[in-house]
Nucleic acid binder design. Sequence first.
DNA 1: TGCTTCATGTAATAAGTTACATGATTGC
DNA 2: GCAATCATGTAACTTATTACATGAAGCA
Lengths: 173, 173
Amino acid sequence: MPRPPAQTDLAVLGALSLAPMSGYRVRQEIVSTLGHFWTESFGQIYPALARLEARGDVGRDDAGRFTLTPAGRGRLRALLQTPPEIGPPRNGLLLRLFFGREAGRRTCLDLLAETEQEVTRRLAGLAETRATLDPTDPDERYALLTLSAGEHQGRATLAWIAETRAALESWPD
Amino acid sequence: MPRPPAQTDLAVLGALSLAPMSGYRVRQEIVSTLGHFWTESFGQIYPALARLEARGDVGRDDAGRFTLTPAGRGRLRALLQTPPEIGPPRNGLLLRLFFGREAGRRTCLDLLAETEQEVTRRLAGLAETRATLDPTDPDERYALLTLSAGEHQGRATLAWIAETRAALESWPD
DNA sequence: TGCTTCATGTAATAAGTTACATGATTGC
DNA sequence: GCAATCATGTAACTTATTACATGAAGCA
């Protein structure tokens, strides 16, 4: 029998640890703050909920919303201690830049400009989310730590872009 | 008919733009320097080569090695100008940290420590690869730019870890 | 009443890894 | 001669997305 995708279970159980909610809301919860660094689609969430309910990790309350059972909370805690699964790296920008000689300097600079815009947009999104969070709420303090990670990454990318642009422009063609 | 995965074609054509080589070597080429931010498996490479050969983008030389045809070079240049496909974000560390309240401070600190080790290893790998490259070679200059991106990202992650560790330790439990 | 959002689910499709099968070459 | 590496390919399996089908609830 196929082993269930543990990280999807983690995300679903985690969402339900905040409050009982429908599958639809689980998705919304994941999309909102968590969406900056994690996604789940309906095609994952509903089968996961069905699986978890069969296992006894989630139940239903009077209103029909999914709830986290004591067993589910235990499983969530166990999953939180497992090492993150690292996916194979796939960075489309760097793939293109690697063959930059073939593309020409102009194309590389264009790619960097597009990326810069996108990262800037992403940073703005993070700032917007940050503004909605309360630094004194014990739950939201952890969310702020994850936002901070995104901000560090984004700023590092911008710094690298500036450096790379300068390098490209200084080379003879 | 299913549209061929463009980024795999890009990686394969790019490898062949460096020199004619076997499919096996294409993989090795991708694994070595490019491997820090891109991967392809045999299950992708051989079908891609067959497809590209049928299209006339790659041919064979006397020794049976795959070569880039003029048409293939044109297609490579076209692909290099396409915007990178951005995959959905999936950061297992941040997913866990987000629900850190449930996990407890101790578990979060452990996760950070593991990540720190891994990033440090990754930075060492980048430095090792950097040492093998010649900054004056026009092809390898582009490879150095991509390595630099990895170094920026890695250092940013380490800085965020230090900051996050300090924050976690300052909180009341 | 009719429009939008909420809600649940499934089927088709896509993308990619792993493991296996098979054989040629090369170095010792 | 034998082991390791080079080389090509395929089949099974995972994982995940997208699109679709369906209908209830809220509100204008």
